[in-house]
Amino acid sequence: NITNLCPFDEVFNATRFASVYAWNRKRISNCVADYSVLYNLAPFFTFKCYGVSPTKLNDLCFTNVYADSFVIRGDEVRQIAPGQTGNIADYNYKLPDDFTGCVIAWNSNKLDSKVSGNYNYLYRLFRKSNLKPFERDISTEIYQAGNKPCNGVAGFNCYFPLRSYSFRPTYGVGHQPYRVVVLSFELLHAPATVCGPKKST
């Protein structure tokens, strides 16, 4: 009989979030998941669920729940959905087409922007091929755009693959930082360890 609440607040209220290319994953298990708490945590810009209804979450049980978190800019949030393409979905964080879970995003301009520009958040701009779903690539190998090998040196047709967002508070919403948490629900042929409040007794 599990009584402890799932530590969603640790994920959502973390002081620092990860850069999207090096997104963070927390496995959540053996706890009571009260998803209604999430609705009250922040004024969400996005709370979209796929393959599951957000209002039914509190009635369900899962084997595992994974919470992935990272920062992107406002106009990239739409890429965090099944079947999307674009720089983020292709080279940084890719959801599977049959994704079961929820994408939660909110504006973090007050936390993640600086007047002089916050350069701490990076994204991958160049990659030889698209990522597979939930693949994480943290390599910093020089990207070869031409025929000549780069031998690890940046220059003509040889690019450092990561680029930094420079978040400034005066930017338009599309270029402001957004914190994203992706909850993916895993149903294996194994005992369910993460249940809503109704199912945990």
Rank of each mutant, 00 (worst) to 15 (best):
F160P: 10
D97V: 11
R78M: 09
P177W: 02
F156N: 06
R168T: 03
N92K: 03
A67C: 09
K132N: 12
F160W: 12
K128P: 12
E141K: 11
F126W: 10
S29R: 12
K94T: 00
I2Y: 14
A105F: 09
L188W: 11
N4R: 14
N120R: 11
G117E: 03
Y21Q: 04
A14Q: 14
G172L: 00
V173G: 07
W106Q: 05
N151M: 12
P96L: 03
K148S: 14
P7N: 15
K132Y: 10
L131A: 03
Y121P: 03
Y35M: 14
E135I: 05
F70N: 01
E10N: 09
I2F: 14
H189L: 11
N1I: 09
V115A: 12
N118L: 04
P161M: 04
V103K: 02
N1R: 11
S200N: 14
D98W: 09
I104K: 03
F62T: 10
P7F: 08
G155E: 06
Y121H: 07
T85P: 07
K48M: 08
Y93K: 02
N109S: 05
P133Q: 05
H175Q: 02
A89T: 00
D97M: 13
I28F: 15
C61W: 08
N1S: 12
V65C: 11
N147R: 07
Y93D: 00
D59R: 12
A192N: 13
S116C: 06
P169I: 04
N92T: 01
L60T: 11
L122E: 11
S69Y: 09
V77N: 04
Y91F: 13
H175P: 00
V32L: 10
A89E: 00
N118F: 04
R16L: 11
V71I: 07
A42N: 13
Y143G: 01
D75M: 09
A192Q: 13
T85W: 09
G152D: 11
K114R: 13
F70P: 01
S166N: 06
N40E: 11
D59G: 11
V52A: 09
Y165P: 01
S113H: 01
F160G: 08
P7E: 12
P197N: 15
S184A: 10
C6E: 05
A14T: 08
Y171L: 00
I2W: 13
I28K: 03
T15R: 12
V103G: 01
N64K: 11
A154Q: 14
P191A: 13
R136G: 03
E141T: 13
G146H: 05
A89Y: 04
N64C: 12
F45N: 15
C150F: 01
L188K: 15
F8H: 04
V11H: 05
